[in-house]
Design a protein around this nucleic acid. Sequence first.
DNA 1: TTAAATATATCGGTCATCCAATATATCATA
DNA 2: TATGATATATTGGATGACCGATATATTTAA
Lengths: 102, 102
Amino acid sequence: MRKRGYEYYCDMRGMLSFLILFLLSKKPMHGQGIADEIKKRKGIKPSPGTIYPALKVLHEADLIKESKSGKILTYTLTRKGRMVLNESKKKFCRIFMGILSA
Amino acid sequence: MRKRGYEYYCDMRGMLSFLILFLLSKKPMHGQGIADEIKKRKGIKPSPGTIYPALKVLHEADLIKESKSGKILTYTLTRKGRMVLNESKKKFCRIFMGILSA
DNA sequence: TTAAATATATCGGTCATCCAATATATCATA
DNA sequence: TATGATATATTGGATGACCGATATATTTAA
């Protein structure tokens, strides 16, 4: 059987979009800023091949909007993005109810 | 572009093992009981092909132990399982810090 | 005006999660 | 003991998150 580290059992796959929406709800950020903040939280910085496609999906879904300034693309939540985030947060709390109070 | 429901952006893939460990830390349960509790929280009941392989992995990793009584297999956290859960919870809180206070 | 650093972007591929379908064993009730 | 309901279990396959490598554009420094 394959050996796995502790981190395996909470590997957070599928949570990237959710986390990005949450971070952007705090303040507008660009791709690298988001990646750095995720590194602070997770310990691992998502690769370009992870973060940019994720941003693209969110942008195409009209959940975030971008404003370009030089090479920097700053993202902000759209109205729809805030809506989706709120729904997702409700779901998140329902699912993990009791975990954080401990 | 593909249309996605709200739930997509918080689809929780990769969190099943973590959730199972957490639920078992509250009280010993069997497979169906776990599946039912997850249905309560997520709204969708994980299929047998999801829940049993997940339990098998956790068991083989010595994170949960089973005790059979008739057709019912009741699972309990092992010492190692409690350790891994605690580590995972710390990580979880670090990553999602700020989401639940809102 | 090169050179180095930073930000963005895409592609190919790997891997784990998860489901649908199916099978088997045990229990309850008739 | 036959029947149906419940619990466990496996397999095959689809999906998509994620990484590594690579490429391009912009900024800054030399």
